Amino acid sequence: MKAPGDEACVLSVVSTLYGSRTFLPEFVAQCHEVLAELDIDKFEIVFVDDGSPDDSAHWVREQCRVDPRMRLVQLSRNFGHHKAALAGLAHACGERVFLIDCDLEVPPLFLKRLWSRMRDSAADVVYGYQEVRKGGWIERWGGKLFWSLFNSLSDSPVQESVVTERLMTRRYVDALLGLGDRNVFLAGMMSWTGFVQLGLPVEKLRRSGRSSYTLYKRAALLLEAVTSFSAKPLYASLWVGAISLLISFANAGYVVVNKLIDPASTALGYPSVVALLTAFFGLLMISLGVVGIYVARIFVQTQQRPLFIVKDIEPSASEPHCNDD
């Protein structure tokens, strides 16, 4: 979202805020360091407050009054990391946009490698990915399982262990924002958008404090991701139903034949019938659940509610920013 006089903005650094107060001074210092090394003086640093429970927004607001190149986009509540990132992209004015988490797991100095790779290629996106995932075995195997399941089910494969950090051209960002998805899985949307995209390996550092991404949130994200980019679970439920029907026919045939051969046989009596009925009822409910998830996705999409609501922007769009000191 450009304001008057923003056309000269070379780079927008976009990050989201949620429990980020302890990281911000070092993050901003490293941003200024790498931007100075790249000799970029027309820039802005856009922070999106995603309903952060700490005083992250207050700290950024104070910095905005000192440095007009810093901006704060404050959302009306917590909408989630992916939607907050889209809010930041929507309010970035730069011809190139650097999206990064401010928790310093990937330091802003990574921008140097991204910038160099984009300069030496025709890429519209240069993104980071982990060759070896950080953390303990639960986090490593959990991440591997996430991407394996997503890519095996999705119609739009994504680089495994991709990270938030990426450098994008203006035309790519505009195309991404034009998708209009209401069920947001950012990595999938970014891959689906196309253009020339190149990856660079990066090592993520261990952050201080606990991550806000719990196991439940990761599972919910996987469900959101798969159902947003693939209809394969629907087809799978159809095949499961067909196979279950064949098994029931085979079982019924076996019971009839067995009774004709041995009228006194009770090998497949009442308990077996109850077990089969219970199993098929469970399969039926799972299939209905899969269909229900997709119907819910359609419902959300047709509501056409905004992905986020902006409560406040500082400095305002009418105030100059993205200029030299």
Rank of each mutant, 00 (worst) to 15 (best):
M1R: 09
A3Q: 13
P4S: 12
V10C: 15
V13H: 04
S15D: 01
S15M: 11
C31L: 11
E33F: 04
L35E: 03
L35V: 05
L38R: 08
L38Y: 03
D41K: 10
K42R: 12
F43A: 08
F43E: 02
V48C: 09
D49Y: 02
D49P: 04
G51K: 08
S52Q: 03
P53A: 13
A57V: 00
A57I: 04
A57D: 02
Q63K: 13
D67M: 15
R69Q: 13
L72Q: 03
V73A: 05
Q74D: 07
L75A: 08
S76G: 03
N78Q: 05
F79T: 07
H81I: 07
K83M: 15
R96S: 03
R96A: 05
V97Y: 01
V97I: 15
D101Y: 00
D101I: 01
D101C: 06
C102W: 00
P107M: 13
L114S: 02
W115K: 05
W115D: 03
S116R: 13
R119S: 11
D120Y: 07
V126M: 03
Y127S: 08
G128P: 05
Q130N: 09
E131T: 10
R133K: 11
K134M: 14
K134F: 09
K134A: 13
W137N: 11
E139K: 08
R140H: 04
R140D: 10
L153H: 05
S154F: 01
S154T: 12
S154K: 01
D155T: 06
S156N: 10
S156C: 13
V158N: 01
V162E: 12
V163K: 10
L167Q: 04
R171M: 06
V173S: 03
A175T: 05
R182E: 12
F185I: 02
F185D: 02
F185M: 02
L186V: 03
M190C: 08
W192Q: 15
T193V: 15
E203G: 06
K204V: 04
L205N: 10
R206V: 08
S212L: 14
Y213W: 15
L222T: 03
V226D: 01
T227H: 09
T227Q: 11
S230Q: 07
K232C: 00
K232M: 06
A236H: 00
L245T: 06
S248P: 00
F249P: 00
A250L: 14
V255S: 07
N258H: 06
N258V: 01
K259W: 09
K259L: 13
I261H: 08
D262F: 06
P263I: 08
G269F: 07
P271I: 09
P271W: 14
L277M: 11
F280S: 06
M285K: 11
I286M: 14
S287A: 15
L288P: 01
V290K: 06
G292K: 07
F299V: 10
T302I: 11
F308S: 02
K311Y: 02
S316P: 02
S318A: 15
P320H: 11
D324Y: 10
D325S: 12
